[in-house]
């Protein structure tokens, strides 16, 4: 396979290359994760440099290379400009990009993940809700085959006792007796947010005002995601 191709994707990260070039990592609709050289984009006269910044959703034309492709054209689909102009939004958007970068495979299309990422960035840019990032992490885990068990104890399958803790190894909530042997305590409010988030009530959670429960769900999501990808999410320290 060689030659030109067109695709649309979200720019995940950029690395400086040489004097004026960048290597961009794009999560595309049709080609999965792609790494490509964008030539001359650090010069002020670059025609598409501004379109290849992280968080931007772009339509690309690339030339397929052996290891790295070369970007020949780029047009913006969604600039997601709001994300770049608020510190709080940016620190919530970047961890989503990093998570996708870790999970996605090169040249392996993942349409569900693509829809989720573009949707999450759009929602974050328009609603500015702090719920978007933790919800994205949980849905990402679910998509990766790690849907947490929330309706019964993940260790003893007891479904009458209240569930009070989360354990990443067991992959779900634990009841009080099981939680004595490990697991991270989860407050009832946070458990409620988590249940609605994954149980089809995402819109109702998005409408919630920011509270301590959302922060708790977010920290839990980061821990579980890091456990799953077996790597630290570096940008999550700014959340």
């Amino acid at each position: 396979m060689s030659g030109l191709y067109r695709d649309s994707g979200v720019v995940l990260r950029t690395i400086k290359l040489g004097e004026a070039d960048r290597i961009i990592t794009v999560f595309t609709q049709g080609n999965g994760k792609v790494r490509a050289v964008a030539k001359g984009v650090r010069k002020t006269t670059s025609k598409f440099g501004a379109r290849l910044e992280p968080t931007t959703h772009v339509a690309l034309q690339c030339y397929r290379g052996r290891e790295l492709d070369v970007v020949t054209q780029a047009e913006t689909i969604e600039a997601n400009r709001a994300l770049r102009e608020g510190y709080g939004l940016l620190t919530h958007a970047i961890p989503m990009l990093e998570a996708v970068d870790q999970v996605a495979q090169e040249r392996e299309p993942n349409p569900a993940l693509y829809r989720m990422l573009t949707g999450a960035l759009r929602t974050l840019a328009t609603t500015r809700s702090p719920v978007v990032t933790p919800a994205f992490f949980w849905k990402l885990l679910s998509l990766e085959g790690f849907h947490p068990l929330l309706d019964a104890c993940a260790r003893c399958s007891e479904n009458d006792a209240p569930l009070v803790a989360f354990d990443a190894d067991d992959g779900g909530m634990l009841c009080a007796p099981c939680a004595r042997g490990g697991g991270r305590p989860v407050s009832p409010a946070a458990f409620d947010v988590l249940q609605r988030m994954l149980g089809g009530g995402l819109n109702s959670v998005l409408a919630d005002p920011a509270g301590p429960a959302v922060g708790e769900v977010e920290r839990l999501a980061v821990t579980v995601l890091e456990h799953h990808i077996e790597r630290r999410l570096r940008s999550a320290t700014l959340l």
Binding site: T44, T45, K47, F48, G49, A50, R51, A79, R81, R84
Partner: peptide
């Protein structure tokens, strides 16, 4: 916009 550039080639963010 950079001096000496063409408006039609400007990207949306910069032009905005």
């Amino acid at each position: 916009l950079p001096v000496g550039g063409d408006l039609e080639y400007a990207d949306e963010v910069t032009l905005g």
